[in-house]
């Protein structure tokens, strides 16, 4: 049976090998810096690969992964948050924050009307706190509208 720990271990070993290879191309040390920039990264890479190998040899019991439906919800939440990261500058704080907070709230507790209210409330409330109480330089609305 293929287990999570084994797959993860293989991925880590591949990353570690790339890490070591990349470190290998760095220049060697000199009189004033005996090890140079390459030795410690190589040690770390070997350590990573060795611990990953131990995970492959003796994997733990399979983690309790969520069902497909929850997994899809988690992927969706991730996509929403990444979209939020890109929207924050062009669209200002208020609108994207209300939408994202409402979506996350709905995902935790699926009550649409309440989630929408929580989204708007959090967005407005946090804006007031950040802008006026803490003095952070937030832009409220899309730049185009602000003129």
């Amino acid at each position: 049976m293929i287990r999570t720990d084994r797959i993860f271990g293989v991925v880590v070993i591949l990353v570690a090998l790339a890490f070591i290879a990349s470190a290998y191309n760095l220049p060697a040390g000199n009189m004033f810096d005996k090890l140079g920039p390459k030795v410690f990264p190589i040690i770390v890479g070997i350590g990573m690969a060795a611990s990953a190998a131990a995970m492959i040899v003796r994997p733990d019991a399979e983690p309790d992964w969520p069902a497909m439906k929850s997994l899809a919800a988690l992927v969706f939440a991730t996509v929403v948050m990444i979209a939020y990261a890109y929207m924050l500058r062009p669209f200002g704080f208020l609108v994207p924050t209300a939408i994202v907070a409402a979506i996350l709230s709905y995902q935790i507790d699926p009550k649409p009307a309440r989630a929408a209210l929580i989204g708007v409330g959090l967005s407005a409330g946090l804006y007031v706190v950040f802008k006026y109480a803490l003095g952070l330089g937030l832009v409220a609305l899309p730049r185009a509208l602000m003129g």
Binding site: S105, I108, L126
Partner: peptide
């Protein structure tokens, strides 16, 4: 449902 979205938004800001 209020707390966690709030925490996320505070983290982002």
């Amino acid at each position: 449902a209020v707390l966690l979205p709030g925490v996320t938004m505070v983290s982002f800001v």
